[in-house]
Amino acid sequence: MDPFVVLVLCLSCLLLLSIWRQSSGRGKLPPGPTPLPVIGNILQIDIKDVSKSLTNLSKIYGPVFTLYFGLERMVVLHGYEVVKEALIDLGEEFSGRGHFPLAERANRGFGIVFSNGKRWKEIRRFSLMTLRNFGMGKRSIEDRVQEEARCLVEELRKTKASPCDPTFILGCAPCNVICSIIFQKRFDYKDQQFLNLMEKLNENIRIVSTPWIQICNNFPTIIDYFPGTHNKLLKNLAFMESDILEKVKEHQESMDINNPRDFIDCFLIKMEKEKQNQQSEFTIENLVITAADLLGAGTETTSTTLRYALLLLLKHPEVTAKVQEEIERVIGRNRSPCMQDRGHMPYTDAVVHEVQRYIDLIPTSLPHAVTCDVKFRNYLIPKGTTILTSLTSVLHDNKEFPNPEMFDPRHFLDEGGNFKKSNYFMPFSAGKRICVGEGLARMELFLFLTFILQNFNLKSLIDPKDLDTTPVVNGFASVPPFYQLCFIPV
Rank of each mutant, 00 (worst) to 15 (best):
Q193W: 15
F419L: 13
P471D: 05
K48C: 09
G298P: 00
Y308T: 06
L391I: 08
D243H: 15
A161T: 11
P37E: 01
N176Y: 00
K420F: 05
K249L: 12
V436K: 01
L295R: 02
V330I: 10
F239L: 14
E438C: 02
A350T: 01
I222P: 05
Y347K: 00
A106E: 04
G117C: 06
G439T: 14
G475L: 12
I123S: 06
G117V: 03
C175F: 11
G117E: 08
L195N: 10
M443I: 15
D188F: 06
S460T: 14
S127D: 01
C372T: 15
P227H: 08
N286K: 00
N176L: 01
N176T: 01
Y308H: 06
C338Q: 13
Q192R: 09
L440N: 02
D89S: 08
Y61R: 01
L57C: 08
S115W: 02
Q279H: 15
R307C: 09
F187M: 11
E400V: 09
L447M: 13
V370Y: 01
R132M: 14
N133T: 12
F239M: 14
Y358A: 06
E281C: 11
A350C: 03
S51M: 04
L152E: 01
R108M: 04
L311Q: 04
I462A: 12
E326N: 01
C338K: 13
G228V: 04
V208A: 15
F114L: 07
M339R: 07
L67E: 01
G91E: 12
V288S: 06
P101R: 15
N398H: 15
I215A: 08
I215T: 07
G296K: 14
I257D: 10
H344G: 12
H230I: 07
V323Q: 01
L71S: 15
E318T: 12
T371C: 09
R206I: 07
F267G: 03
V83S: 03
D143A: 12
S51W: 01
G117N: 11
M136Y: 07
Q340F: 09
T386E: 01
L128E: 15
P33M: 00
G228Q: 05
Y379G: 01
G228L: 06
R377S: 04
F69Q: 06
K322E: 08
C151H: 12
F267H: 02
K59S: 14
K383Y: 04
A477M: 09
G117P: 04
S460K: 04
C372H: 10
C372L: 06
A291H: 01
S460I: 06
E438P: 03
F448G: 03
R132K: 12
F100T: 13
N204R: 04
I452A: 03
G296A: 11
M129C: 10
D191I: 02
S58Q: 07
D341I: 04
E142S: 08
D46A: 07
N398F: 12
P427S: 07
S422V: 03
I284G: 05
K432P: 15
V351Q: 01
G70I: 02
H316F: 10
D341P: 00
F110E: 06
I205A: 15
C216E: 00
G117A: 08
T210W: 14
